[in-house]
């Protein structure tokens, strides 16, 4: 086992100083060392989207990033999004539309959705499906997820227009 190295970054809005084994992925660090289990592992090679977290404001695969690479970064997991109004809207829409069945893909789906709507994504279904193209769900068949995001994107557009 190689020596642990110091690591400091911002996690869910708070500074974290820790020691980490260099080989540990950000996903394993979050899950094992910080007990933030909403970040889930489905493939460990960047193909399923279950481990997406916000890294410096944009979705990133926590399985493709070493914890050591997070030095100085701002990482936000689903647990750290509970105060975000847009995330709250997405969460409510996912529940209302039954867009989460087993729930294992949900953190990653919500992370992609949040980035999509924040960037001014439209309710266009093809555009939403394109944004979700790296998020795998085995339960829903995707339509409910697309519906939920489209509803929030629509509302966000109206809010934007009214403002």
């Amino acid at each position: 086992m190689s020596e642990q190295i110091p690591l400091s970054f911002t996690l869910n809005g708070k500074p974290v100083a820790a020691f980490v084994e260099p080989r540990k992925s950000l996903a394993d660090f979050l899950r094992e060392d910080r007990a933030l289990t909403a970040t889930r592992l489905g493939c460990e090679m960047g193909t399923c989207g279950a481990c997406l977290v916000m890294m410096d404001g944009a979705p990133a695969h926590a399985c493709l990033v070493l914890a050591a690479q997070a030095e100085g970064a701002e990482i936000t997991t689903l647990e750290g999004q509970s105060e975000d109004a847009l995330m709250a809207d997405l969460q409510a829409a996912f529940v209302d539309r039954n867009a989460a069945q087993c729930g294992f893909c949900t953190s990653g789906m919500l992370t992609t959705a949040l980035a999509y709507v924040r960037q001014g994504g439209t309710p266009d279904r093809a555009a939403i499906r394109d944004a979700l193209s790296g998020n795998y769900c085995r339960c829903t068949g995707y339509e409910a997820i697309v519906d939920a995001i489209a509803g929030v994107a629509e509302a966000a557009m109206h809010k934007e227009a009214a403002a």
Binding site: G49, M55, P59, H61, L64, T112, S133, G134
Partner: peptide, 9 residues
């Protein structure tokens, strides 16, 4: 190139 999140990093 791959998917949106891959393109971010």
């Amino acid at each position: 190139v791959a998917h949106p999140a891959i393109r971010n990093r």
